[in-house]
Design a protein around this nucleic acid. Structure first.
Lengths: 219, 219
DNA sequence: GTCTATAAGCGGATAGAC
DNA sequence: GTCTATCCGCTTATAGAC
């Protein structure tokens, strides 16, 4: 699942499993919510503890340091972040595959905006904890998908633009609604939780993707 | 320039102008670079001081508190952030206006990525310092441009998608290359400073915009 | 596993001389 | 305007009883 290009594994904390396993989960949930909003340094460990219904000391029993907790959150969220991209595969029609990918990513932006924001913050500060993943697992995955897109191009089933940009732009547009939700809501009064707004957004993104992938380029 | 929906004005600091005005500038530059990377809480005031070639105490002579400095940086950068959008106006052909806007935004992503990141971080933490701007100046500006886009739609010169999304997606795609530059470079080995990469990026974005704005929607 | 201290350090901010 | 010295609060982390 995660190879040598892993997020550094923090010193193991007690895993004796019991009610303690539930605590662990609640801590990770609370930590994700906080870290995704205020970042690593902007988040206080006792805020997380309160959110999780524990004392600060007790939290530190489960995760020895704030940084270890942060890394644990990053690891737990990573798969959710990578997974939708895995689903693009040669078995599908390019158009259907891209439409499906957009749908998955937009659902993720609606249902798990924190995951998007967590990685956005991490990447924006230079990805000190994720550089290995970006250069490793993510790059491998992206390279694979880019190769597939190129094959589709050669077969004439996809437009001429550089496949990397196609992926970047799908990420950019879908994640925008998670990362900048405050701005989107401030300017339109709406969120992806409104089914009509969700659908309008999805169609606009799809039109953009279609423009990149399936239309004849202009002179 | 900035109305009642302003960023809160911090207590005035000495403006006696001299060599001190130059210091002021250097502090603001250094602060922008730091804040745009590590955010308000992740940035230490003495790091900024060192970058600006001053002592921490001396920095605090010019800006009484870290927060006041942060607000000053935000204010100084705001116009750069808003300006490209102002240039879309009725005098232009829709296609040319959008192409010009994409160009401006992508140049900004290349030349002033810090501005983009600064506001991205601020918005992601819930925009505590910018909520007034978003609800005020930015909303007014966006509303004006959206109205223009709608007029173009009625005249049949623009596609059927919600104009807000057109703007959001242009922001998302262009700013992606600033905000996620580390990831883009990690995955492609390239940056917008490479003229070929810049041009390829620009064309892909334009194709997306064209898909949203000028192509017949699919069934 | 959870609690009550408490240590330890960092970083923002002030006082006051020069 | 700039420096030295210092304060003080906040936050992470530990010690050790229950």
């Amino acid at each position: 699942m995660l190879a040598g290009t892993d997020i550094p594994q923090p010193a193991a904390a007690p895993r004796t499993t019991a009610t303690g396993q539930a605590n662990r989960e609640r801590i990770l949930d609370a930590a994700l919510a906080r870290f995704a909003r205020t970042g690593l340094s902007g988040t206080r460990i006792d805020e997380i503890a309160v959110d999780a219904g524990l004392s600060k000391t007790n939290l530190l029993y489960y995760f020895r340091t704030k940084n270890a907790l942060y890394i644990a959150v990053l690891r737990r969220t990573l798969e959710m972040w990578l997974e939708p991209l895995r689903q693009i595969d040669a078995g599908h029609d390019p158009r259907a595959a891209l439409a499906h990918y957009v749908m998955r990513k937009l659902e993720a932006a609606r249902d798990f905006p924190q995951a998007s924001r967590l990685f956005a913050l991490e990447i924006m500060r230079g990805a000190p904890m994720l550089s290995g993943v970006i250069a490793g697992d993510l790059k491998d995955l992206v390279d694979t998908k880019v190769a597939l897109l190129r094959r589709w191009q050669i077969e004439g089933r996809l437009g001429i633009h550089e496949p990397h940009h196609l992926l970047f732009h799908i990420w950019a547009m879908t994640q925008h609604y998670a990362d900048f939700a405050v701005q989107v809501e401030g300017l339109t009064g709406q969120t992806l939780h409104d089914p009509v707004f969700f659908e309008t957004t999805r169609r606009a993104i799809l039109a953009a993707v279609t423009g990149m992938a399936f239309e004849r380029p202009q002179a």
